[in-house]
Design a protein around this nucleic acid. Structure first.
Lengths: 106, 106
DNA sequence: AAACTATATCGTAATATTGCAATATAAAAA
DNA sequence: TTTTTATATTGCAATATTACGATATAGTTT
């Protein structure tokens, strides 16, 4: 079919999967890394930074924004994108809280 | 096109994206959660636990194994799957090490 | 106003993912 | 050895993702 059966899983499982999917592309990882590096908010610089066409990057930015990982503010005719620290911390928390067991079998 | 331009990004960016992609499905999140919960290694139980057909689960398990997140051991006619703690810790480390800035703009 | 700059959206082609029935494989039990 | 149990593989249909040219939108500059 090709459609994920979202309704068969818990809200939490779907949320984790959605967040992971937003990060699941090297261009989006590169955008996140860049925004973390410059610390302040940048916009068109991302287009110049990445080796992809402007519409493609716009699409990736949209996905990151939909997932809540980044925020965008209009500033004149430009747009200022930056990391959403709240969501970012939440993602970190998701992984940090889990303890992997000392497996005795595999 | 539909093909990710892997060669345009760094090895590290691709690695993060690949790991995220492995987690980017609620069924695979559910499998990981289950393996963490039971602590010991289980196999056919996963098929009974999840509301998906056996071939579908087998496919998801394969992807998790390819990503190195889980390991599988043959045990008679059954297979014992469990979390690969090394890889799991690495994923945690990826996120934990990054500090989100105190954004002043967005 | 006209030209320019920055960004988003549309449309579309190429490719990837999801899901499962059918089937294959292989060990265990009868 | 036949049957059962556990798992993987194949093939295929439905849907999603990726990428980008063309174009739209909107603010800025001249």
């Amino acid at each position: 079919m090709g459609i994920t059966k979202t309704d068969l899983f818990t809200e939490n499982q779907n949320e984790i999967a959605t967040l992971a999917k937003a990060i699941a592309h090297p261009a989006r990882v590169a955008i996140i890394e860049y925004l973390l590096k410059v610390n302040a908010c940048i916009c068109n610089d991302i287009v110049n930074e990445l080796p992809l066409a402007q519409p493609t990057i716009s699409q990736h930015l949209k996905e990151l924004k939909n997932a809540g990982i980044i925020k965008g503010n209009i500033e004149g005719n430009a747009i200022c994108y930056c990391i959403n620290e709240v969501k970012f911390s939440k993602i970190q928390g998701l992984f940090a809280s889990v303890k992997a067991p000392n497996n005795s079998c595999c």
